[in-house]
Design a protein around this nucleic acid. Structure first.
Lengths: 226, 226
DNA sequence: TCAAAAGTGTTCGTCTTACACCCATGA
DNA sequence: TCATGGGTGTAAGACGAACACTTTTGA
């Protein structure tokens, strides 16, 4: 196939890399949004992201955008879906590659303002405004992906860089999955998923009695499906 | 963010839509490859696909390419991953959106030649040549995706437009998953997955005794994960 | 000593696995 | 009537759900 770059059917295409960055604070799931400082969608809230550069991979582009727009570094992200509606961008044909990531909000000081950003903040999921582009749709799919991901990967690791107690982890799962668990069964299931290591240290969470601290494993093996 | 289309960091980007189309014949998994008639990768085998047009969705583009290059229509495809290595295309920066699909090879007469295709054929997975672009990598990921998909969706429906007997289905699963099952347990598991309907008809497969014919449901509900 | 939350074990039911025999048909 | 594969049931073990009491600590 000859790439007919002068054919207007192919001309003026571009790629967005868009990241839904989540955090969970005290059992409340939040997502990072930025307020746009430029056209299009000036002044509107949006997910973090932007146009991919030619000299960077998809993942690297997503990282760069996160860093540029919010100052955030040191986060693991995972590609989950491409979004390609014809009119998703008003300027030219842009296909978005969506990523999800999780981070401990206490660990990062988000830049509330940057060259391209007027403001940035964490939003609870029941309070999402109308976002720029098709970002509401991307966010919805991202939440579904996050729910699938937390039971088969160590994606929550970066939420708990210093380890986590079982009750705190349960609260986090309950927030993300929007479901209440039995303490004993949650513990058994969680340890059975083989994502955690007992550090033999104790810490404090809710009550007075110290709780065991677990850490997420660095590497997780895929489970058999059939 | 202003889209600086004159900035060479963004210039000359494009999108490929690439489909791994699988079939299973007599317990052998095969994938459709085409032989390229144009540069780049002239004369080399490749997955079906090409550049996305500005006036079509990702999925539609993948369908169009399938039809143009092989004559195949009436197949369900599913997007599974984006591929964005910087140098995956020698001409310009192209990001590929990968799709998988399954079709009954007996039902289609593939065009072995077209405007952009010198030849087209089904290849067994142990006999894949070095493909154009990063298509070997895309194919590997596609196989993994196919294995995940057959136990949670009706993706195999288009393999069996007239329905399928349990032994034939078992043979197909064994081929795709590369695993042997117990006949009785496979049946129970399969019916438990809630993908099939008993048609109350009988057909022939391997032996002399007629076997029940099942059909894949048109619509499948997502299962709870936790 | 009390309140608040952490930690643990058992029972029951369901799902998974392993395994053996009868059945319908064509040759 | 025999060979070929189709169809089924059951027992044992693994896993998930429901559930109550004891422990540690700070106030």
């Amino acid at each position: 196939m000859k790439l007919e770059v002068n054919n207007k059917l192919y001309k003026n295409q571009g790629i967005h890399v868009i990241t839904c960055l989540f955090t969970v604070e005290n059992g409340i799931v939040k997502v990072l949004l930025i307020k746009r400082k430029n056209k299009p969608f000036y002044g509107q809230w949006a997910l973090t992201g932007g146009a991919l550069y030619n000299n960077e991979s998809l993942e690297y582009g997503a990282y760069r955008e996160l860093k540029e727009k919010t100052g955030i570094t040191d986060v693991n992200i995972k590609q989950f879906k491409a979004f390609g509606k014809i009119d998703r961008s008003p300027q030219m044909r842009m296909v978005a590659i969506g990523f999800i990531g999780v981070i401990d909000s206490k660990r990062v000081q988000i830049l509330r303002e940057s060259r391209n950003t007027e403001d940035a903040d964490w939003f609870t999921l029941d309070n999402i405004p109308k976002l720029a582009y098709d970002h509401n749709e991307i966010l919805e799919d991202a939440i579904i992906e996050l729910r699938k991901e937390i039971i088969k990967s160590n994606i929550l690791k970066s939420l708990f860089p210093d380890g986590v107690t079982m009750p705190e982890l349960e609260m986090t799962y309950e927030a993300i999955l929007n479901k209440k668990f039995d303490r004993r069964n949650f513990r058994k299931k969680m340890l059975g998923l083989d994502l955690l290591i007992d550090t033999n240290k104790l810490g404090k969470f809710g009550g007075n009695k110290p709780a065991k601290i677990y850490k997420f494993k660095e590497v997780i093996e895929d489970k058999e499906i059939f």
